[in-house]
Design a protein around this nucleic acid. Sequence first.
DNA 1: TTTT
DNA 2: TTTT
Lengths: 142, 142, 142, 142
Amino acid sequence: MSGINKVILVGHLGKDPEVRHLDGGVTVASFPLATSETYNKDGKRIEQTEWHNIVLWRGLAEVASKYLQKGKLVYIEGKLRTRSFEDKERVKKYVTEVVAENFTILGRKSDFEQTPSTGENSTPKSESDYIDPNDTSGDLPF
Amino acid sequence: MSGINKVILVGHLGKDPEVRHLDGGVTVASFPLATSETYNKDGKRIEQTEWHNIVLWRGLAEVASKYLQKGKLVYIEGKLRTRSFEDKERVKKYVTEVVAENFTILGRKSDFEQTPSTGENSTPKSESDYIDPNDTSGDLPF
Amino acid sequence: MSGINKVILVGHLGKDPEVRHLDGGVTVASFPLATSETYNKDGKRIEQTEWHNIVLWRGLAEVASKYLQKGKLVYIEGKLRTRSFEDKERVKKYVTEVVAENFTILGRKSDFEQTPSTGENSTPKSESDYIDPNDTSGDLPF
Amino acid sequence: MSGINKVILVGHLGKDPEVRHLDGGVTVASFPLATSETYNKDGKRIEQTEWHNIVLWRGLAEVASKYLQKGKLVYIEGKLRTRSFEDKERVKKYVTEVVAENFTILGRKSDFEQTPSTGENSTPKSESDYIDPNDTSGDLPF
DNA sequence: TTTT
DNA sequence: TTTT
């Protein structure tokens, strides 16, 4: 009870988002995201890259499939989820994913040509026009 | 464009939430929150407390007025907003507030007897029943 | 370059920390942490628990082994790291862990009787006495 | 006791950092940071900008003065601190600042020509070479 | 006072 | 598999 499970990432997409439409019309998108970190070791700069499996659902998946491409720099907020599955040999395996709840494209101007801000960052400043990032029934939030 | 403005606090309410109903039926709640930090100075433990002005809108304000009281320990997620106002002598002043987007009560089990988790923490794990924390038209999310 | 890889968790320890001392005197501690989330599904409250593998190094491991026990509620800040290993059958497997950079015990007053705040939360408010949470050479930060 | 006070910002510097050297040799740097957010109101895109007062101490101040300039996009992690002061008319006033504990430059390649990653993002992946971001006695972490 |  |  009363837990917090929050992940904040800034990194580059390793591939274009892969989009699937589940039975019932639910959209899911996923892509690998690289977060790199540089540090000194014995006077040399070492770069260490960590790869994350990003998963997005519904409206967020659709926005992602439209505006995110391989190489783009994004801020992603989400939560951790570890799920099990069986591989081809029917061996049970586990994978930990970051289920995105919100993302924002960062970076170069050219990246913004057709861009959004998404998720809860679209919450209203005034009290007039809340756009539900999870709502797929209507217009996208931009 | 492409900014992030996020605040994460864990602290105790200094007072009960103060609730106001604006013209148009919008609910606003506010309360002071203390975050304390302990550190060593010359071998002595020093506790330093920082006070934050928390503001909640709409459904979140109503949930807060119902479940938060002075002394409770809460996790709050929100964003910074600095606004100006005129005091009684008509001097322009500034105040920085944390506009809550989500909160969760932490602490003793007894605190949870009638408790919730709120805001985006209520987002569905499955794809079936999203409850909009900003929606005041219907039932509260618990 | 320029990545951010940050995890923020509030949850309960599933077990006491397990401590190991590596060659070279480095201390490592680890424990499972549960973050639970409650949401409505068809009018019923569903609780969903996510388990995280927490790993702590050096001074933070020592502090953890001393002050954290099964059942305690903690705030943990860290980063994601996925590493591979071979199981007993020499099959390559992957596991994603949260490498803690900082933690704070939350919860009942009785929990705090001998407690600390650790890591970067111990950074000085004044400019006088920085205590390095990663430094194992000297006293613990409290 | 047991509080968390954390701010995460991504935005652009409104001015070059202003650096001061206090008695005792402590360095302090400060600059305004803009975080912008775009949302829809009646079909029009509205941009709303929030300004934050960023303050950096010691080694972090020196790194900032060297690598941050007006216009740059940065990720900043820190904590809120409200302090009082007297203005020229000796009226007591309050200001809320974000005391940075860590920052990373984001954005265009040209921005990185002489750039770093700083603060805790420079913490070692291995257990060999921790560089204290608050330590001003030695070399900067790059 | 930034940026898109 | 990204980016600098």
